[in-house]
Structure formats: structure tokens, C-alpha cells
Nucleic acid binder design. Structure first.
Lengths: 216, 216
DNA sequence: ATTGAGGTGTAACAAAAGTCACCTACAGAA
DNA sequence: TTCTGTAGGTGACTTTTGTTACACCTCAAT
């Protein structure tokens, strides 16, 4: 468990340009640290939400999952951002509608919901932060909707791969075809087929458990 | 143009149970009334947003539209609700990403964005209202995503029809097949086909420019 | 080295949705 | 009335995506 000074430094570094000193101080006093390994599930569908996470480093994948086990990637959360939706879920005592998975070893700070409410009243910068977060998530959901409504699967796949490359900062993606199929809500066979096409076109190289982007 | 007393009464009736008296008073002083006819387009994609609308009566359809003219229904806004997304669009001076259409003659109150900011600082009830609005829109976007990802078109069509019936409070929908196809981002021929199936099953009756729900 | 599990390739087929072509029906204008 | 534009019906076909089945490969555990 990191100490207070450490937490404050992390917050300062990640959110200092948005949030005022006093708030950073308050936050660092009550934050609880959560470290995750890659592929760790942080929130399950149906979980009762008691704490709001802010991502300090790493990246989180947020997906929808229905009763039949169907999955669909919604958006990513990176360092300095939060899932504002969680906030309202907490306040209203509604169970989580989404699944959150760490894509790499990540560091989160968790805050009890009561403080959110207090900060909302007290700090203008916090209000902006939360509103801005909602807005970003909303835009990202719209992008997801656009992709599903207006793009064919091969285009969505390519977008998925380039998004992942940008996010992870590496041309090598350690994914199985099945994992990709899950994220795009398709089937492994179809994804293998389309990946093969991308390989034939010289855009990627396929290896076991790994896809390497060649063009970008 | 309605007078101040009138606007206050409307606000009181629509939002009095959420917003405090003082805020209602302030709102009624600066609100501008906008009345729309059915099918009037309130916001186009790419519009610069200067005022935030609150729906007093009627219902608004919000859809996504891309450069190629493809369309997709996102969600509806009814009396007492607002499109919080507009707020951030205003603040950030970002052009509208969506199209808003009145589904029936509707009454809106429009507020300049500066006041939003002020109210955000001053009124707790306003903060809750805006956050709650964002949250609702977000949930509705997720429902749309669910439908697109996990339902077949015939199921989506039936959901669309029942949603419309609930919203309009009438079993008779005055839509052409083309309008439905636009909302669901499909083609007229396909929608006609699926509607025919629903008619054969005894769920609807098809007339020119009109669909009547028989079961519900 | 053997075994087994998970990952990938691929052919053959099926289902869902979209497209094209052309038809009829209806309503309002000329 | 006839004409014209819009709405809707339908068959034939294509494209896209999903499914099934099975082969082969790799790697780690035994």
C-alpha cells in the first residue's frame, strides 16, 4: 500500500492541471489504491458499486455483457480519466451495467461515493471534471454506435486493431482471435477469416497469440 | 410568445418537483419559448449550439447522422428532460454531433449557456438534474447499442414500434416504411418485408402512412 | 516422447440483411 | 378524367456474416 505522499504525487501528476491543490490534497487523504494485473476484471455486470475509480496509469476496457454472455467493447479509459457513469450508479444504488477489465497492469485510486457528492458541491474543477468525463464517454459510445451501424465488420476490425495499437503504444497486440471476436461481438471463425485478409493485404502479420501491425 | 407567469407555471409543473423555487424563478425570467410543429428539425448535425433546450411537452427524437446521410435513431427526450450533451457542446463550442427532430408539436424552453454554468455553481438541484440527465442518456445509448449488437432486425423493429406506441400514447403510428427504415438504418424493402411478417402474425395492421399495433 | 488443451486455417453451408427491378395502389393536381 | 409522385408489395438475387465440422499446429505438463 502506497503512502499518502505517494498518492498525492500521483494525483498531482495525473490531474494537477485540472483539479485545484486543495482538492488534490483531500483526495489523496481518502484514496484507496488498487493495483491490477493485465486482464483482471475490475467490475462485473451486476456488481454493487460503492467506490468510484480514477485511472492513474494503465488502461481499462469497458464492455457491455448481456444475460446470454454476449459481449461488446464500448470504450477505453486511460490515465487521468474516470468512469463518471459509476458515480450515478453509486448514488442511485443501481448495479453496474458494464464490465471493466484492465488491459495491462494498471493503477487505480478508489474514492467512496459520499466524497463525490461533497466535492461536487465544493469544487468547480471537480464539477467540470465529472461533466467532461460524462461527455467524453458519451462521445465514445456514439463512436461505437457509428461503427456498428455504418461500418462493415472488416472495417470495424481494422479500426479495433489501430485503436489498440494507439492505446497500448505498441505495434504488437497480444490477443487471440477469440478475444477479438468477443470484443467485436462476432465469432472466432469470422475474425480469423478477416484477419487473414488483412494479412494478405500486407497490413498485419499473424502469429500465435499475437498480431503485428505493419502499416499504420 | 408566452409571458413570464406562463413560463413559470410551465416550469413549476414540469420541473417543480426537482428544482427549487428560486431556480425556477430565475429560469422563467430568461427562458425563451420555442414551439415546434411535428417533424420539425430542431438541431441539425453541425449546428453551432448556443442555447440549451428543456422539453416542456411533446417528444423529441435524437438521431445520429453521418456524412453519407446515413441515419440512426439514438433516443427520445420527453417532457421535463433535457439533452445534457448539448450543454458540454455549448461550453466547448463543439458543433452538434446529433440531429434533433420533434415527433409531435412540442414546447421547449431555451436557456443561454452562461446561465447553465452559473446554476451549476449555485444550485445543487441543477447539478443533480444535469448529472441525472447525462446518466439517463447514457443508459439509453447503451440500450441502443444492445439492440444493435444483440438483436435481429425483426426484433429491433418490434421494439421500435412498441417504444413509439408508448411514447406517443397511441396505437396508431403515422409513419411510412421509409421513415422507419431511416430510424433503424435499414432499407425500405427490408422494413416492408418485416412489417408484412408482423401483420401475418396478427401483431400489427398496415395501412398507407399508418401502422396500427393490435397486440401490446 | 506423449498427451492434451488451446489456438488457428479452411471448406461447406446457412441465415440475415441488403439490392434491384418492377409492379400495383392511392391521392392530389392539372 | 388523366397524370404524376409517393407509398407499398414481391420475387430474384447478392453480400455479409455466422455456423459446423474437422484438420493441423504449438506448447506445456506429465
Amino acid at each position: 500500500m502506497r503512502n499518502l505522499v505517494n498518492k498525492k504525487a500521483l494525483l498531482q501528476e495525473t490531474l494537477g492541471y485540472i483539479l485545484e491543490e486543495e482538492l488534490i490534497q483531500e483526495m489523496s487523504e481518502i484514496a484507496r489504491v488498487r493495483e491490477t494485473v493485465a486482464d483482471e476484471i475490475i467490475i462485473h455486470v451486476g456488481d454493487e458499486l460503492l467506490m468510484i475509480p480514477i485511472v492513474i496509469s494503465g488502461s481499462i476496457k469497458v464492455s457491455r455483457e448481456n444475460a446470454s454472455g454476449n459481449e461488446l467493447l464500448l470504450y477505453y479509459i486511460e490515465g487521468g480519466d474516470t468512469c463518471a457513469m459509476t458515480l450515478q450508479c453509486c448514488v442511485r444504488k443501481v448495479d453496474s451495467q458494464i464490465k471493466a477489465t484492465a488491459m495491462e497492469p494498471s493503477l487505480l485510486l478508489m474514492f467512496p461515493v459520499e466524497n463525490m457528492d461533497k466535492w461536487m458541491d465544493k469544487y468547480k474543477s471537480w464539477r467540470s471534471f465529472i461533466l467532461s468525463s460524462y461527455h467524453s464517454r458519451m462521445m465514445e459510445l456514439m463512436e461505437t454506435i457509428d461503427a456498428m451501424a455504418f461500418m462493415r465488420l472488416d472495417e470495424r476490425l481494422l479500426k479495433y486493431l489501430t485503436d489498440q495499437v494507439k492505446l497500448m503504444g505498441s505495434m504488437e497486440l497480444n490477443h487471440t482471435h477469440q478475444q477479438i471476436a468477443d470484443d467485436l461481438h462476432s465469432s472466432r471463425v469470422v475474425i480469423s477469416r478477416l484477419l487473414k485478409q488483412l494479412e494478405t493485404k500486407g497490413i498485419i502479420a499473424i502469429h500465435r497469440n499475437k498480431i503485428v501491425m505493419k502499416e499504420f
